[in-house]
Design a protein around this nucleic acid. Sequence first.
RNA 1: GGGUGGUUAGCUCAGCCGGUAGAGCAGCGGACUUUUAAUCCGUUGGUCGCGAGUUCGAAUCUCGCACCACCUACCA
Length: 501
Amino acid sequence: MTEERQTATADDNQIFAERRAKLAELRKGGSAFPNDFRREHLAADLQAAHGAQSNEELEAAPVAACIAGRMLLKRVMGKASFATIQDMSGRMQLYVTNDGVGPELHDRFKHWDLGDILGVKGTLFRTRTGELTVKVTELRLLTKSLRPLPEKFHGLTDQEQKYRQRYVDLIVTEEARRTFTVRSKVIQAIRRFFVDRGYLEVETPMMHPIPGGASARPFATHHNALDMPLFLRIAPELYLKRLVVGGFEKVFEINRNFRNEGISTRHNPEFTMLEFYEAYQDYRHLMDFTEAMFREVATAVLGTTKVPYQGEIIDLGQPYARLTVVQAVRHYHSEITEAQLNDRAWLVAQLEKMGAKYKPADGLGGLQLTYFEETTESLLVQPTFIIDYPAEVSPLARRNDAQPEITDRFELFITGREIANGFSELNDPEDQAERFQEQVRQKDAGDHEAMHYDADYIRALEYGLPPTAGEGIGIDRLVMLLTDSPSIRDVILFPHMRPED
RNA sequence: GGGUGGUUAGCUCAGCCGGUAGAGCAGCGGACUUUUAAUCCGUUGGUCGCGAGUUCGAAUCUCGCACCACCUACCA
C-alpha cells in the first residue's frame, strides 16, 4: 500500500498508463524504437512542388511521397482514416485506408495516439475539399509518445508550461516556432551584415577574473584547480577592444552576457548581446551604421521596415531622431525650460517629488539623465538616438572635444526600451586609468555596479588603441521587436525559471 | 523588492449564498472509405497547489506558504 502511494505521482494517470501498456505491446513485436526509416521529403517541399496540381494531374502522373513526423490530428471513419502529421517544415494530411495498408495495419493505426511519430510512404492526391494528401501505402510507428499533448484546439495556454516545457510549446504552437525561426534568421542576417563589411567574428572569454565592460553585478564562480574566483562576463567590451589593439580593426561578437539582477519581462539573467568595434570611426558613424543594419535585417527577415509591435507600427525605415538628453526631455515636455534642466536644485526637487532614486553625489549631467529616464525614456516609441551622455556615467567613452563633461556616446531607444548603446571609445590610457580609479572609489563607497580597475586593459591601451567606435545591441530585445513579443521570455527558448517543487 | 490576479481530470475551463465534483478535448468500447477542432452512441478518469483554522460539514470562508502571470522598481 505504501509502495502504491509512492508511485502514485501526477504522471501516473490513466492515459499515461494506457500508453505505456501500448509501448509494452510494441516491445513484444520487436524493436519498439526503429531507426531505419529514411524520409525523402519534407511536408512544405511537397506542398510547394505539388500544391498547385489538380487531382487529375496527380492521378495521371503519380507523385511518390516519403515523409515522417508527429501525428497531431486523427479522424477515424471505419475503413478509412485521416491524420495530420507535422515535420520541421510544416504539416501534411494522411489518408490511411484498409485498401491502402490492409485492414490489420489500419486497425493497429486506429490505436496509435496523437503525439506518436510516424514514417509514411504513399502517393499524393487531392481530397474533395482540395487538400493535398498522402494516400498511404506504407505506415510505421517510429516513436511511441507516452505523454498526451495539450488540447488540440486551445493548445498550450499556460505561460509557465510554455517556458518550462518549450518542447511542448514548439510542437503545438505555430507562433512559437515562427518566433524562434525569426530569431535564428535575425542573427544570421546580422552576421551576414558584418561579414559582408569585412568584420571578423570572434569569441572572447565568458569567465572573467575581473568582471568589466558594463555597470552591473556579476555571477561569481570558482576555479577549483587554480583556487581562484571567476566571474561570468557582464560584457565582452574590454576584450574586444584588446583585439582592436592587436590589429583586428573590425571585430564583432554575438554571445551571452550574464547579469546578477532582477528578472522581468525585459530581463533574463543570461541574454544575448551583439558587440562590435571598428577602428577609425566615431559614434556618429555608428548611428548611420545601426540604422542601415536594422533596415537590412528587418527587410531580410520580415520583408519590410514597418514593424508591428503591440498595436503600433514601428518604422525602422525613416531616419531615426537624434536628440540630446535635454532636447529629448524638452521635446516631450514642452513646458519644461532649458534653464530648469540646467538647475541642479530644480532637478533634485523634481526627482524627490517623483520619488525617483538618484545618486545625490551625481553632477548635473547625471541628474539630467535620471530625470530623462524617469520622464521621457518610455515615450521613445519610434527609433530615437539619445546622444551626448555625461562622462560620469560613461567610464569607457571618449570625452567630447568641445565639452569634456559629456562623452561622444548614444543610446538607441525603440518601444520605450534601450536597444543599443554605442560610443567613440576612450583610447587615452591615462584618462581611462583615472576613470577606473573613480569607479573603484564608487565601489568602495558601496556601489555594487561600479567597475573594477583592470590593469591589463590599461596596459593594452598603453600600446595604443586606434581611434575606435564600438556598440552593443541587445539581441533579445531586437527579436522581441521583430516578432511582436511582449516578454523577453517569449524570445528565449529556455528562459530562466525557478526550480519546480 | 512592492502591488494585483491565478492554481479544479493529461489539456482547455465551469463550479452561485459552505451541503461532499462537472463539461468539451484526449483516452477506452461501438458505428462510419474524402475528413478538416470530423460526427454519432456509450464509458473510465480528481490529493480541487500545499499546510493550518472556522464549521455538523470547506474546491468554496479565514490565515500562512509555494509557484505562475501581469503591473511596477533596477539593469540591456
